[in-house]
C-alpha cells in the first residue's frame, strides 16, 4: 500500500434509502414551515391581539362614562353607525369615489413621476437643475397646491387630481432616481455588452434592475397620494371619505367621524397588504431575500 509516499484507505459506503426516522422528521419540518395557514396565523395573531386590546380599552373608556357619549362614543355606536351608512350606501359610494380619484391620480403620478425621475437621472444638466427643485417639492405638503389648483381649474375633479398628483410625484421621481443611481454598475455593463443601448437599455435592464429600490418610492408616493386626497376632500369636495369626515364634524357626529377614520385606515392597510404585498413577494421570489 505504502511506498509511493502515501497511504490509501477507501471505505465502502452503501447507498441505502433514507432511514425512516429521518424521512419522518423531514416531513414534519417541511409541513410545519410550509403551512400557509400557520404563516397566516403568525401574521394575524399579533395584529388581532393589538387591535382587540385597543378596542377593549376604547370600550372600557366609554363604559366607565368618564366622558360624555358625544365625545367618546362606544364601539357599539360606531359599529351601528357604520352598518347604517353601509346599508344606506353612503360609505360604499364614498369609498368607491375616493378609490377612483386616488387610482387615477396615482397612475398619472407614476407616469409623470417616472418620466421626471428618468429625466433627472439620465441628463446630468437637468439632474442638477431639477433635482433640488423636486427635492424641495417633496417637502411641500401637496394640500398647499389646493388654492392654486382651485383658481386654475375651479371646483372640479381636475383640481383634486392635481393635488393628488403633486402629492405623489416627487416621491416617485426621487425613488426612481435613487434606485437607478444606487445600482451596481455591472447591470448596465452587462446590458450594453449584450447589445442594449439608449432607451432599450433603460427599458430592458436599468429600470427592471432598479425596481426593488423604486418600489420604496412608489409606496411612499401612494401614501402621499392617499393623504393628499383626504386633505382635499375634507376641504371642499363632494363625496369621498374625506367629505364624510367633514359631515361628521358639522353634525357633531363623532361616531360618523370614527367610521370614516377607520375606513381610511383600513383602505391604507388593505392596499399596502394586497397591492404592495404582492409586489414585494414577487420581488422576493425573483431576487431572493437580499433584494427584499
Amino acid at each position: 500500500m505504502s511506498g509511493n509516499g502515501f497511504d490509501e484507505v477507501i471505505f465502502e459506503i452503501d447507498g441505502e434509502a433514507v432511514p425512516e426516522e429521518v424521512a419522518e422528521e423531514a416531513e414534519r419540518i417541511s409541513r410545519s414551515s410550509a403551512g400557509r395557514g400557520k404563516r397566516f396565523l403568525d401574521n394575524a395573531l399579533p395584529t388581532a391581539t393589538v387591535v382587540g386590546t385597543l378596542i377593549f380599552l376604547w370600550w372600557l373608556a366609554s363604559a366607565l362614562d368618564i366622558w360624555p357619549e358625544y365625545l367618546v362614543p362606544s364601539p357599539a355606536t360606531v359599529v351601528s353607525r357604520f352598518a347604517e351608512k353601509l346599508a344606506s350606501g353612503e360609505i360604499t359610494i364614498a369609498v368607491l369615489t375616493s378609490l377612483r380619484r386616488v387610482a387615477i391620480g396615482f397612475a398619472v403620478a407614476l407616469i409623470l413621476g417616472g418620466a421626471l425621475g428618468l429625466t433627472i437621472t439620465a441628463s446630468k444638466f437637468l439632474g442638477k437643475g431639477l433635482g433640488s427643485l423636486v427635492l424641495g417639492l417633496q417637502s411641500l405638503p401637496s394640500i398647499c397646491w389646493l388654492p392654486l389648483a382651485f383658481l386654475w381649474f375651479g371646483i372640479s375633479e381636475t383640481t383634486i387630481l392635481f393635488v393628488v398628483v403633486m402629492g405623489a410625484l416627487p416621491s416617485v421621481a426621487l425613488g426612481l432616481r435613487s434606485g437607478i443611481q444606487n445600482l451596481p454598475p455591472q447591470y448596465e455593463r452587462a446590458g450594453r455588452n449584450l447589445g442594449a443601448q439608449g432607451w432599450t437599455l433603460y427599458r430592458r435592464v436599468i429600470i427592471p434592475a432598479a425596481l426593488p429600490a423604486f418600489l420604496g418610492g412608489i409606496e411612499q408616493g401612494w401614501a402621499f397620494a392617499w393623504r393628499s386626497l383626504m386633505a382635499a376632500e375634507i376641504i371642499f369636495f363632494g363625496l369621498g371619505l374625506g367629505q364624510i369626515l367633514e359631515t361628521g364634524r358639522q353634525l357633531s357626529d363623532l361616531a360618523l367621524v370614527m367610521t370614516a377614520i377607520i375606513s381610511i385606515i383600513a383602505i391604507g392597510v388593505i392596499v399596502d397588504g394586497v397591492v404592495f404585498g404582492a409586489a414585494r413577494r414577487a420581488i422576493r421570489t425573483r431576487w431572493g431575500l437580499m433584494g427584499a
Partner: peptide
C-alpha cells in the same frame, strides 16, 4: 460595445428579475 464581442464578468452579472432562460434570451431579443 457590440454583441459581436460579449464580455463575461467575474460576478456573472446575471439579471435577477429574469429567470435563467429569459437571461439567455436577452441578446437574441435585443
Amino acid at each position: 460595445p457590440g454583441p459581436d464581442r460579449t464580455l463575461m464578468f467575474q460576478d456573472a452579472a446575471l439579471f435577477p428579475w429574469l429567470n435563467v432562460k429569459k437571461n439567455v434570451e436577452m441578446a437574441p431579443k435585443l
